[in-house]
Amino acid sequence: MAALLEVRELRTEFRTGAGLVRAVDGISYTVEPGETVAIVGESGSGKSVSALSILRLVPDPPGRITGGTIRFAGRDLLRLSENEMRQVRGGEIGMVFQEPMTSLNPVLTIGRQITETLEQHRAMDRASAQRRAIELLSLVGIADPERRLRQYPHMLSGGMRQRVMIAIALACEPKLIIADEPTTALDVTIQAQILELMKDLTRRLGVALVVITHNLGVVARYANRVNVMYAGRIVESGSAAAVYRTPQHPYTMALLRSVPRLDRPRRSRLDPIEGQPPDLTRLDRGCSFRPRCRFADEGCAAARPALETAGERDHLAACFRRGALLGAEAAE
């Protein structure tokens, strides 16, 4: 089966006062129909910009997509006209963002925001759009949908607003939803509700999901595959099971070790990654993780390692010592 989304060598740059920032520096990954792929990374890793780039929502200026292709359902999104792209956004690709209060229009009712999408993309008349909106709100678990349709975003709780965002994302029966930190602003019990809802709906409706998150637990629970980003590049990629069981990049290893876990005995000290993330305006030609890496040597300064197979099929890592580090780690 052909991939639903195929990102190849995508590059997005920002011109800033401090210099040129390669926020996304040549990333490639695919999403198969119906699967959930996580992009995980810390602040500044480029994970959100990579998602915005797919939707061509990077503010220009200062940002600009400078290279690569984004094939979605047989077309290169980077070659579409702005009008065609508008049909893709919210139509063929649904979007869910972190802060539902800023992504919903505060002066339009919930109902209007859903029916607007349907009228725009599906050329539905008011009455059928209204019926579909009620259906969608019930689908995302909102009780009393007729009353909610008449309400404004500020009258809803954070969790409820995120349910509305999901309803809008699903309105036009997309094949793909891109969710950027969809539950980061929510409390933990509400976060669990929203994630379970998204998992249930994407499975039931066969929608593929690209979820951008910094939460390693969320990835473990919901993703089939995971791409780990650091300093604008994907440093490790593979099935969630393989990446967590046998991480091949020192950054992934260190990241997994740095989080305290509720299911493990308490440690006397946490194992942080020392140092700071790199300044993206001052990257050299070596591996960007090198200054914080316990395994780095001179070779790591000379060239940047490419993302290549590390052991299992489909498990890739961008490290010269991939495949050889697990032993070193265990020996300590």
Binding site: V188, T189, Q191, A192, L195, N215, L216, G217, V218, V219, A220, R221, Y222, A240, A241, Y244, R245, L256, V259, R261, L262, D263
Partner: peptide, 12 residues
């Protein structure tokens, strides 16, 4: 406690 996902796909 149950709402916190554990960073381990096997456990989850």
């Amino acid at each position: 406690l149950a709402s916190v996902p554990v960073p381990d796909p096997d456990v989850e």
